[in-house]
Design a protein around this nucleic acid. Structure first.
Lengths: 205, 205
DNA sequence: CGGGTATTGACCGAATCGGTCGATGAGAAT
DNA sequence: ATTCTCATCGACCGATTCGGTCAATACCCG
């Protein structure tokens, strides 16, 4: 990716976004270099000029995504926040920060997880194994779940919120720019609703 | 699809499921007939023997899915049930009945909605337009939303449940048979949780 | 104007595409 | 046993698309 470095930033973004999008929606094999070039707004020859081969492009993108996620986590993760909803709000903020920079990163990473093409599968497995550490850091352990009313299972609440947030994201139209504030607002509303009805009275502000 | 009719039922299912899965995960253009044949467990020549052309196959599947959904709706929809949660439970039961018969139907139908290949796009548009009636019937209007506590927005609750159910479904491993009872149990749990905390006391027996 | 260098259209052999067809073989009927 | 039927498939077709290359052009800076 070094050859990309001295391009205008918006062009870089356009190219990586197009490539990420193509790979995440079509998988490694079915995402042709022509597709990628079209999605990136450049000619096919330029893709090879910038990245060498299709495989190198894929692996470069892998590293690229990882760097951005790691950076966002290190920037925003705070283990001192223990309140259940605040923790989830923080995790969502991290996701959203990543998403705002490159909307296709998260779907690329999750598609990577299911990628099976023998040309890249071993590298992916090695990569996933090597970033196990990050997952441990992100694991939402050490949360304070004592404020819930009886009969409310924190894990269920977490699942509800995770799925709701996935729904918001996948609902975003692919064409338009992402609107982080609107998303945060909608998500906060749901969190507040659950908090108000699932926390014991004494913990409502 | 007439040629399929006198095959053993499990073979029919295997073939349609494979084709539905290929199209829904790869789209019309990128789902090659070889892919479909492999996913269906038959030779490529048989695909053409059964369906004529790739396009006919796609359109046949479209009708096939529609028939099953219509049948499930007519069988299970009851407009007399007005309670919010019961309505949602009913809609989920319909979805689940469809899913249990052919796990790829719903994802095929939703992928259809985004299909843009000029070879099938006009037929899809016509089809969608012609089945508008069904959507009106399914629209969850006429629900009783008076039992909610103040400050609880029924639309938000519905969104939570819809997304939660989507989460359950997409979480199912693609390889194994679907377990409707386990899904219903998990979903009922969440519905009960929300009902217990969002309905006014007087409606909780 | 000259000299890089960023960018591309045209092209390569190989692979894959949608689709065809003759060979094979199991089963039913005679 | 023999013929007929027909489901099934491997091998093949011409056409397209694949990943990748390269000579030529467009463009920028001095």
């Amino acid at each position: 990716m070094e050859k990309l470095a001295h391009l205008p930033a918006d062009k870089q973004k356009q190219i990586t976004d197009g490539a990420l999008l193509s790979f995440s929606t079509n998988g490694y094999k079915k995402a042709s270099v022509s597709d990628i070039a079209a999605a990136a707004g450049i000619s096919k020859a330029m893709v090879f000029h910038y990245f060498g081969t299709k495989k190198e492009l894929y692996l470069d993108l892998m590293q690229f995504c990882s760097d951005i996620v790691v950076e966002a986590v290190q920037e925003k993760f705070d283990p001192d926040i223990t309140d259940f909803f605040e923790r989830i709000r923080m995790a969502s903020a991290i996701k959203l920060a990543v998403l705002a920079r490159h909307r296709a990163i998260l779907s690329f990473l999750s598609s990577m997880f299911f990628e099976q093409d023998p040309e890249v599968e071993p590298e992916i497995k090695a990569f996933i194994a090597s970033s196990e550490g990050l997952r441990n850091q992100m694991a939402l352990e050490g949360m304070d779940v004592s404020k819930f009313k009886e009969g409310v299972d924190p894990q269920t609440v977490m699942k509800i919120l995770v799925r709701y947030s996935e729904g918001i994201v996948s609902e975003q139209p692919n064409s338009a720019a992402i609107d982080p504030e609107a998303i945060v607002r909608e998500f906060d509303e749901v969190m507040e609703l659950l908090r108000n009805h699932f926390y014991k009275e004494e913990y409502l502000h």
